[in-house]
Simulated assay, not measured.
Amino acid sequence: MQTSIIKTSIILFVVVTIVFSTIYTPQAILPTLKGVFHISVLEINLLLSGMLFVLMIATPFYIPISNRFGKKNIMIFCTFFLFLSVLLSSITSNFYVLLFSRFLQGVFVPGITAIMLSYVQEIYPKNHRGLGMGIYMAATSFGAVIGRLLAGWITFLYSWRIAFLVFAILLFIAFFAMIFALPVNKTELTNKRVINKDALFSFLSNIKILSVLIIPTIVFFSFMAISTFATYHLAQEPFNLDASQLGNIFLVLLLGVIISPLAGRYSDIIGRLRIIYLGIAILILGIFLTLSQSISLVIAGLGLVTMGMFSVQSVTPTYLGELVPEKKATISILYQSFFYLGGCLGTFLPSIFWEYYKYNGVTSFCIALILIGSLPLAYINFNKKKEA
């Protein structure tokens, strides 16, 4: 049993890392791609924002499909077509074909990410589920780092097409790893969970739940905005970093691997909301530091932005599950949709501020959004304590 768990854990970590790395592949090389295609920041950022928008829309549709055809089968299918779409990215010289390939990736990625959360809880024994979820969360963070880091290095040494080709090869490896190494959950066909549409609408009309769902949206919005536009900021005077150096900057995202389990653990001790508020405060402080003219302070700021984001995202799903314990599957889908909405908008809307006000405008907008978006939850909980 122990050997089987170790094998499953290793394969799970590798597969999730590879899949999540493809989401963020273009981020470190956006300035390079902008120069290659001679287009605006708003247009080139569609490689991220457009993909995340499609991902957000596609996420809810995979749950009923996986209930019918089986989680592992759907994940294998989506991994293969994700491989083909990333391969298309590597062979095109046309921006619109590249953008189309990214949209395709947005269609197939949630067929793995949206299903994997419940799949992990089903393939691990009850007393090892915490281990499984910890490995999954660590792999998502590690994948975000690898996607940016490798893309920056490979683009600097070879070309952006080779960078996409490398990730296509990794996905092909993940495809076979899924087929031959990940177990099939033998009980899932007798334990189907259906997303209740009425519950979705009732949650969206519940002010308390909606105020909590806004938090991952604004936090991931700010994280994607800062990590995206920091690359443009650092590629300019006085920093003038190249593609490989920009890729190296994203090593700070490894802090997410460390902070995620710590935030979860301490939320059990001091409360979920306190960790959420603490994460928001750290995030804002980090954004302020990225405005510095010192590269060391900018890196420290990006580190704090990472810590703040992962602190909030590690605790929010658990807090939502505690608010509606009988509808965890439904609230999980809502959480993921709001989360990716934030990522989509976070690479699109700030482009407007960048065009007119550069990096100062982006950071000011993010801080204002975080403060305004946090007010409803703070107000509700303040009144709750007052009534108590």
Rank of each mutant, 00 (worst) to 15 (best):
Q2N: 13
T3P: 10
I5V: 12
I10C: 08
P26N: 14
P31W: 13
P31F: 09
L33C: 08
G35T: 13
L42M: 14
N45P: 14
S49P: 15
M51D: 01
F53P: 11
I63R: 01
R68A: 12
F69M: 07
N73C: 04
F77N: 07
F83H: 02
S90Y: 00
Y96G: 01
L99C: 00
Q105H: 06
G106F: 01
G106D: 02
Q121I: 14
K126G: 13
H128V: 09
S141K: 03
F142N: 01
G143C: 05
L157E: 15
L165K: 06
F167E: 05
L170D: 00
F176I: 02
I179H: 00
F180S: 03
F180A: 00
A181M: 06
A181Y: 02
R193I: 14
I195E: 08
F203I: 12
I209G: 03
S211A: 12
P216D: 05
I218Y: 00
A235L: 11
Q236K: 13
E237P: 07
P238Y: 00
D242C: 13
F250L: 09
V252P: 10
L255S: 09
I258Q: 05
R272E: 11
I275C: 08
I276V: 15
T290S: 01
S292P: 02
S294V: 01
L297N: 04
V298Y: 03
I299E: 05
V305P: 01
S311P: 12
G321H: 15
A329H: 07
Y335Q: 05
Q336R: 04
S337G: 04
F339Y: 12
F348N: 01
E355Y: 11
S364V: 09
I367R: 02
L375S: 09
I380K: 08
K386G: 06
